[in-house]
Design a protein around this nucleic acid. Structure first.
Lengths: 144, 144
DNA sequence: AAATTAAAAGAGTTTTTTATCTTTTTATAA
DNA sequence: TTATAAAAAGATAAAAAACTCTTTTAATTT
């Protein structure tokens, strides 16, 4: 479904949102530990998320990653598109470039409905929403 | 979503079902052409599908692939599990090994519903069903 | 201003997936 | 029974994804 990079990206975004309340910064080390990701690998991902302004970063002592109010409105879709591109949103499940409504692959109409639900879910779930839910400590990011 | 191998497998299964009516055999070359797949690559995939008895094969002149009535009842799920394994069915979307109902990842419950629909679609759509629909020439397997 | 801290950037390496090429086996037909 | 056709099997190669290491840049703090 998602690439490994994208899985890490989603987890990292949620992690930073949680840990960076009231101006606090979260370091790469903390993000790596908190999401069970290889440090240098998640570094690349955070760079990309930073470049695309889905998260903020500051270098130097006391530096790290944090989020603005706007960043908290980032949806799963925003993250997926930033890391994996929009192939999940646009491409045919069977990989047929020519597949469309008028030239459908065998599973086109069956998959259409699934995809609609999937996209709706990813569009409506934002980092901020997860953040609220998390305050109850009811879900997990680490592989225990 | 699916691996390239799996995309080819689904297309190939549908192609063989269509072309192998009344005892006819379909050759690797035909399958490769009909599904826009590299011949030697689809050969490996057909071997695997053959080993798992999702399709029949006969060597030698006039040999090739064909399907029994039982093979026509193969679902998308059967093909996906044969080629990609059951990670799509079992694994957490964020790749967390420990994710479960009692230890959910942030998107667990959101994704649960999507997954249920997806699996239902893949379980209920069989090669035979597609085959019927195809008789009307209403869908495509090739990349034009 | 110098030392230090932490992310950014660049340059590999490893592993997995996708694809190709060659040889062997099996069945058919001349 | 030999030649041939076609899949099976094995081995290799290329490309992509995942991961690691090193150097540079930017911000702080002393």
């Amino acid at each position: 479904m998602f690439s490994k990079s994208c899985e890490y990206a989603i987890k990292a975004m949620i992690f930073v949102a949680q840990k960076s309340k009231d101006e606090a910064r979260v370091s790469l080390k903390e993000i790596a530990k908190g999401t069970d990701a290889p440090e240098h690998f998640i570094a690349k991902i955070m760079q990309e998320l930073g470049r695309k302004r889905l998260v903020q970063s500051i270098k130097g002592p006391n530096g790290g990653f944090y989020m603005t109010e706007k960043n908290l409105q980032t949806s799963i879709t925003d993250i997926v598109k930033a890391i994996d591109g929009d192939k999940l949103y646009l491409d045919c499940v069977l990989g047929l470039k020519a597949c469309s409504e008028v030239n459908p692959c065998p599973v086109h109409f069956e998959y259409k409905e699934i995809k609609r639900n999937l996209i709706k879910m990813m569009d409506t779930n934002t980092i901020g929403k997860f953040n609220e839910k998390l305050d109850s400590g009811s879900f997990f990011l680490k592989n225990l």
